[in-house]
Each structure stands twice: as structure tokens, then as C-alpha cells.
Design a protein around this nucleic acid. Structure first.
Lengths: 207, 207
DNA sequence: GACCACGCTAAGCGCTTGCTCACTTTCGGC
DNA sequence: GCCGAAAGTGAGCAAGCGCTTAGCGTGGTC
């Protein structure tokens, strides 16, 4: 079995901002456990055990188990949004920027499958207010992709029937990578990213 | 709140084969509950309550809570496979048959979102042997779509770089509909089916 | 060297879980 | 009208859950 540092820590290293050290170790342990078994099937004892601590230690750094999920979700969505924004705001045509968005977003979902899985599939386990906050971040992700598609249409680069529906389909395609991607499978994250960028450009009818 | 009959029963009515009546009511109640809260967050008391029975009644018809999920998964996957096979074996060009596969598969995921959600997302909650059995059905679904894409390529109808990867992406796109589709949203299942058929034909490079 | 704030643990509380069991009700066959 | 099987109930068990609390060791301050 791999340690928390190897999987969740090594893959994203987006947890550097979490302090103190014990709180970060607990967070990384929670990401791992939630990704493997799901939020509800994960026990606080399991999380604490993976972080090499007693069950009670968890409650020094986090009020509840749900707060752990909330924190993970927020950091993960912020990272996802950052990826989409960075690609959207670089120089280049809409075609190039959309391809960049898709390939980097897919790479994140495939490579950081542990984190992405929790971020994308455990949303319903959050309480109402926390979910509302996360959904706002999600809408920002949506807007970031839609903007590039709209620019492509306006510039005459794309041929799209339904911008809203196509945006949704593009994001859906990328997100679902976190469900099926297998590190031991035949593809690397880079390969899936490249394949998906090509597929998405076909979907938007690049000429 | 809606009753079990209205949602899970009305949408698929694929549960007709389940007898006796009490066993079917419990199964439908379980589909509902699993779809709403997930397998692990659902209690046997909740399932029995939705079916209008006492908690103990569940164990007259099913050995464990997991057996319920297993049964649901098997019936659901059989239905999914049937949909893909029917579309694959009708008369027509590969283009027409692929479009039919996608639109009917998507319609099932959108319209029967309750069932589809359980079938597609609660697989990991099954035990090892049960999961193996279900995964075999899943591979058959994959093969059914891949066959049509391969025929399209052979007939010169499609232009595909990576048949295996594209097949996976097509299925992934359809399946993820169960995650985001909302009955109160702006689209009907038919509309999403039509949109997605168009997008998929673009993905395979229909000329 | 007495002090105390801090990070952590051992033990365990109250509650819910999946599941069982002794018992009652229902009903077709004779 | 009696009987046995099948279907369902109410109460509850053992285990595990999220979370709390009393107390311990340790490092910095005066």
C-alpha cells in the first residue's frame, strides 16, 4: 500500500498551503480514503489511522468529518478553475485555447484521479450551504469554457448548434475521466489529454 | 414527495419481472434511496419505510442490503446492454446505428436517471464477485458500441484516430448524463439524446 | 524550576447501523 | 374448521459510528 504522501500529496502537491503539518496529513489521508471508499463509507478512525494519529486528533484540526470534505472540495475546485482560466487567458486562437483547456483539465483528472474523484463525485455529501458555495465555483468553471467556445463561434473558427449544451458535454466528458481512468491502464494522462482535445475540437466543428 | 412507483417504477418499468410484489416494491424503494443518497448513506430502515414495510421484511426477500444493489445493478446493466444491442442490430448505415445507440442510451440515462445513477455510480459498493459479474456486462456494452464504430470506419463512413479511445469517450459521455441531468432543467431527455447523437457523429468524423 | 498553553491520546458516550428472532396474521388445501 | 407454510411485525442485539472528555507529555517563558 502506498502512503498518503505518495498518492494524494505527490500527484497534486496543491496541499502545500494547508498548515500545520498534522492538519495537512489528515487532509491528504481523507482525500485518499474518500476517493477509495466514498465519503459515507469512510470512518474518522480510518482517516486518523492513515495519518498515523488517534481518532480524537482529527477533531483538534477540524470540527467535523464534513469540514474535511468541504475543505478538500474547495481547494480542488479552486485548482480546477485555475487550470481552466490559465488555458483560457493564454495567447492564441480560440481553437488553441480550447484544446489547451481540455488537455490540461483532462490531465488533471487522470493524473490526480484521487483528488478529482472526491472533488467531482462527493459533492452531494456536503451540507446545503457548503454545496451552494462549491456549486458557485463550478458555474465559474462552466463559464470559463463557454467563453472560449463563444469566442470561437464569433471568430468563425467553430460551428456549434447549441453552445450551452456543447459546453456542458465538453465539461462532462472531461470530468468523467476521473471515474474510469486507471493508472495501470493502457493510457498515460498525457495521451488521454491529447485524444480528448482532438475529440472536443471535432465536437465544436473546427474547420 | 413522490412514491416509489412514480419515479423508479414509472420511468423504466423494467422491474416487472421482479416477483413477488413485495420484493419488487422493496427493489424500487432501494433504487430510489440509493440514487438520492448513495448506497452507503442509505439505511435498510429507509428502504423498508419507503416500501411501506417494517425493517425486518426486507430480509424475507433479500439476504443482505448488498444483494439489493447487486440485483438492481444486474437488471439495469441488462437493460443498458439491450438498448445498445437493439440499436446496433437494426437496419441502416453505421452512422444511423451509432446515432441511434447514442440517442437511445442517453434517453435512458436522462429519463431513467434514478436507475441509471445507481447502475453507473454504485458499482464500487459491490463485493468482489458481484463486481466481476457486472463488469463483464459492462465490457459487452463497450463491445457493442465499438463494433458499430469499427464498421463505420471499415465502410469509410467514419474518420477515427483511436477506435478504442473514441469508444470509451462516447460511452463516457453518455454515462455521465446520469450525473448532471436534472428533470427540472432546460432539456428533455429527447433533446439531450438528439444533441449528443450529433456530437458523437462529429467525434467519429462522419463525412 | 514552577508554570501553562498546546498537541495529542485513551477511553468511552450516546446513537445508529445491518441484521435476527420469537411471535402473529393470512390464506389455500383438505 | 383445522393446519401448515408463507409473509410480515416489534423488539432488540452486537458492532461500529461520529464525536467528547479527562488527562498526559513537552517545549517555551518568566
Amino acid at each position: 500500500m502506498t502512503t498518503a504522501e505518495e498518492t494524494a500529496g505527490g500527484e497534486a502537491s496543491a496541499w502545500g498551503e494547508v498548515t500545520p503539518d498534522a492538519a495537512r496529513r489528515l487532509l491528504i489521508a481523507a482525500v485518499e480514503a474518500f476517493a477509495e471508499r466514498g465519503y459515507h463509507a469512510t470512518t474518522t478512525r480510518d482517516i486518523a489511522g492513515r495519518a498515523g494519529m488517534s481518532p480524537a486528533a482529527l477533531y483538534i484540526h477540524y470540527k467535523t468529518k464534513e469540514e474535511l470534505l468541504h475543505r478538500i472540495s474547495r481547494i480542488g475546485h479552486a485548482k480546477a478553475l485555475e487550470i481552466l482560466q490559465t488555458a483560457a487567458r493564454r495567447e492564441g486562437t480560440a481553437t488553441e485555447r480550447l484544446a489547451d483547456q481540455v488537455s490540461s483539465f483532462v490531465r488533471w483528472h487522470a493524473g490526480g484521479r484521487t483528488t478529482a474523484r472526491v472533488v467531482q463525485y462527493e459533492l452531494d455529501s456536503l451540507g446545503p450551504e457548503a454545496r451552494k458555495e462549491i456549486l458557485a465555483l463550478r458555474r465559474q468553471c462552466d463559464a470559463e469554457v463557454r467563453a472560449v467556445i463563444e469566442e470561437g463561434v464569433a471568430a468563425g473558427e467553430f460551428d456549434v448548434l447549441d453552445v450551452k449544451g456543447t459546453t456542458l458535454a465538453v465539461l462532462s466528458l472531461c470530468i468523467d475521466v476521473a471515474r474510469w481512468f486507471n493508472v495501470e491502464g493502457p493510457w498515460t494522462p498525457d495521451e488521454v489529454g491529447a485524444l480528448y482535445a482532438d475529440l472536443v475540437l471535432r465536437m465544436v466543428g473546427v474547420k
